[in-house]
Design a protein around this nucleic acid. Structure first.
Lengths: 405, 405
DNA sequence: CTCCTTTATGCACACGTTTGCGGGCGCAAT
DNA sequence: ATTGCGCCCGCAAACGTGTGCATAAAGGAG
């Protein structure tokens, strides 16, 4: 395409009244993809060089305001959109970040992603979404793919990889922030919730209601958040002089289905728990179903606490007492941290946000009389609403996790 | 750089063939924070030209298998990752799609996004995530921004823009697919659910249970899906010879909060409904809360149906009867349609997937005796489980929407 | 009128990759 | 030996943008 006529012929034609280009009007909407106008097209139309167009469009003071206005008008009329990919190539910054989550269908991840997207968008960044399906290998692949896309930074939530990030981070040379999962080293930047505090506050709340036989339904073991929440549960028990019973601490997978069977197992125990502290709201939702499935009632027979305060928590029956995690804010914080990293600061390290206990209707005072509940099937008449149970509709918060040293 | 001397490796060769050399070679090894290796670096290491590296890495038959293997090995060792942005610039295809949703925090959008992401990932595509916050202006901006990123295609779910897409689509010249919102023209490609069928099936189900006074709690009026679902409700009523009562059709906003007040208004009517058909599960969740708030029971006093079959539907108490929308599949279908469009096919047009009624515990036979319910506060003794109520735990599907002509 | 400063613009790169084309080389056919 | 042919491989030109540097125009000071 040696179209180096220098504007001579082009000028004549244009003067003759041929409108700016050939494609839009009517003729060939179905042929070639009718190339988007490039900066050179605009330059030709405005009778300037393309660097001038470039400068005009980024409001550079180097260009005459009058010509800048003219150029902008022409660009606008031509529907010109500068190519972010070409700009990214020369600038070596794509104004793009990668976000890898287990799955956006998970409400927790969705909330975090929402916060991240908003913060990114505020700064003119776009975000690539990648699902890891909670698989370590897949997660690694995703991070690699994002690096190929030359993202300026990466956020990964609920990582399943952990320490492998150190070499990867060194090789990829891309700023990274981890959400809700920390590698117990000092070199990775992360933002997470005060898991231990939150879990402890929930358990203490149950203890204050008189419960002594308190179960814990966790996530798969081995993950950092799971470990911390279990630890908070244990500490609360210890502080109250209640021994930890291994039979009362069971594992689900963070989803309601598994929680149903896990909870059902607890209810089949010879001496079943009167309260259960769940890893998260999804688990609690499953636990409540299992409890109802045995003809028992929440909280009269078994109290339940969750973790996260997902949108549905206050709409469950009874409304769920849970530990609030400000997920959207966490996403925003993660994004802001990443911005700092990308701009060269290296100070962020690890951020921990506080948790807040929200007391609702799913927790109540333990039954004063142990009752004749030798078997799973209890008498349906035992549905006395013991005093001390908060109204099932209140949503006022109470208590708060404190900063963990 | 262009060192094709062959035998010797080193400086003197360069002195001999010093052509239009630049100053890059010796200066850069210790410059910036260890720039990612480029294809030319690999070429130098492998003593070939960079086009050969390019061909070797995409398994071109034009390169000797032996040298290809050697190149791949060197590239691997150097941790070379080809730049997708440079490739996108020359190829004019970024293998990238844009997805704009109201917010990923919405469970429906999350599920759809998940399906889209999976399908895209299967084909080596990455997806840009953009939230429109259900704002038309914001949505337009997002689409523009995605076009600047030179995405190969765009999917927008629950669009708030509608007909404005025709000019935009023509100007941007990017393939687009709309999910769950159709512009009543023929030029846009969309995939949506059989809203009218689904809503009708739900209402018919209520009618079969003996209900006559059936309310409808919708989304904001004016949106396509809302209109269709309302229409399905009306048709079912009409087919059963039940007149449409305007006082029984109210509007929420698709979120539980608004549904609580909307439903509460219905319960305050002189002649309150015995069943309510809700726009979606979020609305139904709010409606159930409002019903409980007045001391009434589901389904004994009021039956409730939803739409979507979100993950929490079967965990509500009672489990929610709802119309299942295969959201993840819809996302996948949308993505596959977009692939066809991107590859030049123009045949997709509009896809409609069937809806399926899932009967659970939130719907039951209408009370045989109208009872003394002059006021909202009814006698708590009226909790007779009338026969005909399906088990509250069954999740078996029944009935299915049919293709709408 | 010359020189210098300021202002506005163009030129020539560069970013990292893909791809059409030409050409060297080995080998078989003539 | 010459020709022809297929196999590899390098050259150069893109793709669309940003930016350092030179420079023309304009204007003021001497």
């Amino acid at each position: 395409m040696p179209e180096k006529d220098g504007g001579k012929a082009g000028g004549m034609v244009r003067a003759a009244g041929a409108r700016r280009e050939l494609r839009l009007p009517e003729r060939q909407p179905l042929r070639q993809p009718s190339r988007q106008p490039s900066i050179k097209d605009i330059a030709r139309l405005a009778r300037v060089s393309h660097p001038t167009v470039s400068r005009a469009l980024q409001n550079s003071p180097l260009v005459n305001p009058a010509t800048a206005a003219k150029i902008r008008k022409i660009a606008e009329a031509a529907g010109y959109r500068p190519s972010a990919v070409a700009r990214g190539l020369v600038t070596r910054r794509t104004r793009t970040v990668g976000l890898v989550v287990t799955t956006v269908a998970d409400p927790f991840a969705g909330e975090v992603a929402c916060g991240i997207e908003q913060a990114a968008n505020d700064h003119g960044y776009a975000v690539f979404l990648a699902n890891s399906n909670a698989d370590a290998e897949c997660e690694r692949k995703m991070v690699q793919a994002l690096a190929e896309r030359r993202v300026d930074g990466i956020i990964v939530t609920s990582s399943r990889v952990g320490s492998d990030y150190l070499p990867m981070l060194a090789e990829l040379n891309v700023p990274m922030v981890l959400v809700n999962d920390q590698y117990p080293g000092e070199f990775v930047h992360s933002v997470m919730i005060a898991n231990e505090d939150g879990s402890r506050a929930a358990t203490e709340h149950l203890i204050e209601l008189g419960h002594r036989r308190i179960a814990y339904v966790g996530d798969r073991s081995g993950y950092q958040t799971e470990t911390e929440r279990l630890e908070g549960y244990k500490r609360a028990l210890g502080a109250a002089g209640i021994g930890f019973a291994a039979e009362l601490a069971v594992h689900g997978d963070g989803r309601p289905e598994a929680a149903v069977t896990a909870m059902d197992g607890l209810l089949k125990l010879a001496d079943p728990p009167t309260a259960v502290c769940c890893y998260n709201d999804m688990t609690a939702m499953g636990a409540m179903k299992a409890i109802r499935g045995r003809g028992l009632r929440v909280p009269e027979d078994v109290s339940v606490t969750g973790f996260d305060d997902l949108f549905f928590a206050e709409y469950l029956e009874p409304p769920l007492t849970t530990v609030r995690q400000t997920m959207r804010l966490m996403g925003r914080i993660a994004m802001e941290s990443l911005f700092k990293l990308m701009s060269g600061e290296d100070s962020v390290a690890q951020v921990k946000v506080e948790a807040e206990l929200v007391v609702r209707g799913s927790t109540g005072r333990v039954r004063t009389n142990p009752g004749p509940q030798v078997q799973g099937i209890t008498t349906p008449a035992s549905t006395d609403r013991s005093p001390g149970t908060p109204g099932t509709r209140g949503t006022h918060a109470q208590g708060a996790g404190r900063r963990l040293g």
